[in-house]
């Protein structure tokens, strides 16, 4: 009974939050609602006794990914409404509706057929974190290592792209040295003149 109440409560909350995300015109509302929806999703993991995944859901999606979105959004005016330019609203509605229906059918089919079973059941007397670790380092070792390599490549690329003249202070640099600042400076000057 307890689980059912919690499941329906969090299900309704999650759907409401994601509905706000897609329907609102204010980016601040949609960002807050997305963050809240991510937290409500973690409740399902807790209900399924997968505490580790639930906590990871909170810390990765809400704590890190959404915070980076928020940091990016600080460069926009978050109080103004966004004007969306949809050419053909009917096509968008039909296409997204069809895709959603297809996804529900695909993911719901094994439940209707009642032939869903764990190919790798969790070993007894093993905690959540240990079970995840065992699976990661046995069955999914190669995807895990490949993902690690890709993250490393992405990190190096990010450092190279962003790290030009990182050891110099932008305020102490003279104009010719810093191309980025230079361009900004000229643009501002032009705007002032016009």
């Amino acid at each position: 009974m307890f689980e059912a109440v919690a499941f329906y409560l969090f299900g309704a909350l999650t759907i409401a939050m994601f509905l706000i995300v897609v329907s609102t015109k204010n980016i601040l509302y949609s960002m807050s609602a997305l963050a809240a929806g991510m937290i409500f999703i973690s409740a399902f993991f807790f209900l399924l006794d997968a505490e580790f995944l639930g906590v990871v859901q909170i810390v990765v999606y809400t704590g890190a990914v959404m915070a980076l979105y928020a940091f990016g959004m600080m460069f926009f005016d978050s109080t103004r409404d966004v004007k969306e330019n949809i050419e053909n609203p009917r096509a968008v509605f039909v296409l997204s509706g069809m895709i959603a229906l297809l996804l529900v059918l695909m993911l719901g089919a094994p439940i209707v057929g009642a032939n869903i079973e764990a190919s790798q059941p969790t070993p007894e007397n093993m905690g959540n974190a240990q079970a995840v670790g065992v699976v990661l380092f046995t069955k999914y070792l190669i995807p895990f290592e490949v993902a690690a390599l890709m993250l490393l490549v992405a990190m190096i690329a990010g450092i190279i792209l962003a790290g030009k003249k990182m050891d110099h202070s932008l305020t102490l640099m003279n104009e010719e040295d810093s191309n980025i600042c230079d361009r900004e400076y000229k643009k501002n000057k032009k705007e002032e003149q016009s």
């Binding site: 580790f52 906590v55 909170i58 810390v59 905690g127 974190a129």
Partner: peptide, 14 residues
């Protein structure tokens, strides 16, 4: 819960 420490840290992060 089994992952108490992680829970405290992650909620703190929120």
């Amino acid at each position: 819960i089994n992952v108490g420490l992680l829970f405290v840290l992650s909620v703190g992060a929120i």
